[in-house]
Design a protein around this nucleic acid. Structure first.
Lengths: 215, 215
DNA sequence: ACTTGTCCTGTCATGCCGTCAGCTTACCGA
DNA sequence: TCGGTAAGCTGACGGCATGACAGGACAAGT
């Protein structure tokens, strides 16, 4: 798909090179989960990977470039999130189940990738198009599916005409992403996971169908 | 309240010192809105303020320390957001107006302070308690007020018993904050501000009262 | 063993960080 | 008016990360 992996100076990377490259990415990923992005230094990543800073610069232009790589990989994996919405029935009990599973799956994905997602979020918020694109790639799949769902319900007259499907879907997805990235915050606050999820599901259901769920 | 302003080495700052200090804070604030947090260097801030790096370190332990200062100030100002919720009536047309004004005020505050809020968000997400506390301070005022509103409605039997007021309020506020910090993103996406706000207001209304608004 | 192309590292110039000693400036009491 | 004292500022320095390069190590094929 991506063709050959290349070094910064244009050579094609062989088996050994790719292994080193991957190791650097892995170590960077670990470092991001244990220390603030701002404080991640090339020299630390290199040391952790048992190599030298110069090697790092052979494969990546800078730390940001490497982060983008990791993020891209995650985004590809994250496209599966569509499955949480596509082909779902939002009426009756099935609707409530759909909402619950969407929340569950989304929070889980976020928890698994929180370190990278944080950095992506910051980059996107700061206006960096590359990060923004990646964020889109992840959220788009879910948002587009949700948008479609709302449109369908609207066509059937089950949702008010003055609801903008895209804005509604986008807001709900943004909410899920926000809550997901502050999960620990909610906990420390006294809101338990167990209460949080049903509430999010309720909001999702209300937003999409405009009605209270039948459980 | 905070007593005297002190330099890092313990001296009390006089009029001139405080002016310099403030100038450094102002310049830092500007730089944060024009370039990524990661790239803000002490030397640039100092140059911009017409002083030397050493002076910066006289007033702040590091860049983060100075950012915390700015954020603290903003948080104090942000406590006014409570006014958007407190003493509001969530029934009938008044309820819709309350939701609209909450959304409006919230987005506006976020837009005015987006550069700092981005950094605060990142710090909080990375687990830094000092940033987390500041974020709380801003969101808490709104969240607590909203929580109370939900509790009241619940007491009157107008909201389902199985809704957790805190979780609901927290989720809604998180949504508002998330959408606010990606306002530009929504725009670039094809969702206009004009559609976004009513939808957010609708979600807020639905979440708090459990019912569609009467406009 | 020799060649070829990949892979890694020692080294170096550059630039920012964070600290200190010491100079300048403002204020105040005699 | 004149020191004295504390506040305010900066030049300079060791230390470290960055990013570039050239050359050595290594694997694979001949």
């Amino acid at each position: 798909m991506t063709g050959q992996v290349r070094t910064v100076d244009g050579r094609v990377a062989g088996r050994r090179g790719q292994a080193t490259r991957q190791k650097l990415l892995d170590c960077l990923g670990e470092m991001l989960s244990s220390s603030p992005y701002r404080d991640v230094k090339v020299i630390d990543v290199a040391r952790k990977a048992g190599t030298s800073p110069a090697t790092f610069y052979q494969y990546f232009p800078d730390v940001e470039g490497a982060v983008l790589e990791i993020a891209e990989e995650m985004a590809t994996e994250g496209a599966q999130l569509t499955a949480l919405v596509e082909g779902r029935n939002w009426v009756g009990k099935a609707g409530w189940a759909a909402a619950e599973e969407l929340v569950e799956g989304f929070l889980d994905f976020w928890r698994r990738n929180d370190a990278i997602l944080r950095v992506v979020d910051l980059g996107a918020a700061e206006g960096d198009k590359r990060f923004y694109k990646i964020r889109m790639k992840i959220l788009n799949s879910v948002t587009n599916s949700l948008t479609e769902s709302v449109k369908e319900l609207q066509a059937k007259g089950k949702v008010d005409k003055d609801v903008s499907p895209a804005a509604m879907a986008g807001s709900l997805v943004a909410m899920l992403a926000a809550v997901a990235s502050h999960q620990k915050g909610f906990q420390a606050w006294g809101v338990k996971q167990a209460e949080l999820k049903p509430n999010l599901a309720l909001l999702v259901h209300l937003g999409i169908t405009g009605k209270k769920p039948t459980k």
